[in-house]
Design a protein around this nucleic acid. Sequence first.
DNA 1: CGAAACGTTGAATGGTTTCAACAAGAGTGG
DNA 2: CCACTCTTGTTGAAACCATTCAACGTTTCG
Lengths: 244, 244
Amino acid sequence: MTAVEISPLTRKLLAFVALNDAELALLEQLHERRRSFGIGADLVHQGQSERAAYILSAGWVCSYKIQPDGTRQIVDFQVPGDFLGLRSVLLRTSDHAFEPITDIQAAKVQASDLINAFSLMPRLATAILWAASRDEAMVVEHLVGIGRRDADARVAHFLLELGSRLALVGMGDRAGYRCPLTQYHLADALGLSAVHINRVLRRLRETGLVTFRDGQVTFGDYRGLVRLADFDPAYLDQSGPLLK
Amino acid sequence: MTAVEISPLTRKLLAFVALNDAELALLEQLHERRRSFGIGADLVHQGQSERAAYILSAGWVCSYKIQPDGTRQIVDFQVPGDFLGLRSVLLRTSDHAFEPITDIQAAKVQASDLINAFSLMPRLATAILWAASRDEAMVVEHLVGIGRRDADARVAHFLLELGSRLALVGMGDRAGYRCPLTQYHLADALGLSAVHINRVLRRLRETGLVTFRDGQVTFGDYRGLVRLADFDPAYLDQSGPLLK
DNA sequence: CGAAACGTTGAATGGTTTCAACAAGAGTGG
DNA sequence: CCACTCTTGTTGAAACCATTCAACGTTTCG
């Protein structure tokens, strides 16, 4: 029971496993090589090969893929406590790039350090793999959203998911949350045009469901929004510690 | 150098790592609990909780999510050599279901056996995590396709990806491959209506690019199709063994 | 002060869906 | 063995959701 502030990643993992002091210490140790990065400067480029991942401790990032025709698809957003590029540790080349949306703080973790930590602390390994599995489940849900939800439900679902994720690291609740994304980010993430995103947001605002404005998401009618989006947060698997 | 036929999974992993005899033996051992399943009978239901995965050794499967409104989104197809539910080993509940498309053979692997194999043979662990990373990369590419490609390019890209995957386990080449999917499967996977899939397939056939008919995909103009789809197989990471 | 980034709105266009109808083959039970 | 149904594939026409194009307002920042 330390008075020291814990990292967002630790906070997130504690929702899954109750880690002991040694495990907590090793986890914080992974944050050692912490650095700051400015807006827009990609951390990892598409096609780059690097056997390392990052732990994001402050700020927002998006991971995206650029198409040959110039359009881009944002695969996911990362908020504090999330890993960047955990998957590409094992693939020869990173299949997508990461761009900071705000100024950020991130710690670089070498693949070897991670593997080392895994063998020392199997429970920690389980927790981190849980986080990776959860990330993938989010990509899958994202796929379902783009494939099968109309624009209104898609935007609503997205704003709800983000709210749940942020709540897990103490950055949001059912009233709303701070959100530095632009309408262009939403468009690139949700497979819609920026113009249409604007119209959808207006509709959601005028019906009193949510307001997305000035870097702030405010829920007006949380349950109504859940109904519109058919939002079932089970895939986020964050209903409380699984392992004691 | 055994005359014994190797499993499709082994064949696939050998494209990534050159495994030694002990590793190969352990890998084959994971296939022990092999069983047959008939068409349509779900292996894992959405929401089910089971700490196990399957290795598919024969037949085709799809993983999908059903929406509350009844529509379904197919997340991915599994062909021989693929894992089923590797991700849900760590999550509390499976976030999607698996349905055999043909009669299949699959071996159940307990999470504990897998973890045990990982600690015994770290290189095998790396190979399996490579396969998992590759699966996730395919889901990401799938997301990009649904989000940013029009119907023609989406279908073309899908047929090309499937071809590359099957080639890796010796079930297809640049001429084409056997394919038990219906147009409804394509529709549910690609986020399009079955009617529109039919029109797209007709167009592709009439322009001589591909023929999808009677359980057979035949490439008419492979390079033309690659151009239409902007298909770059780098994300499949199967350009030859990475580890010696 | 001008440029750049972001947001906003209208009108026209277009890709895709929905609805509807029909054809062909496989499997089923009387 | 023949109706019957179910699945899959096919095609046309109308309706619709989202895009594109275009224009303009606002704020930020160098």
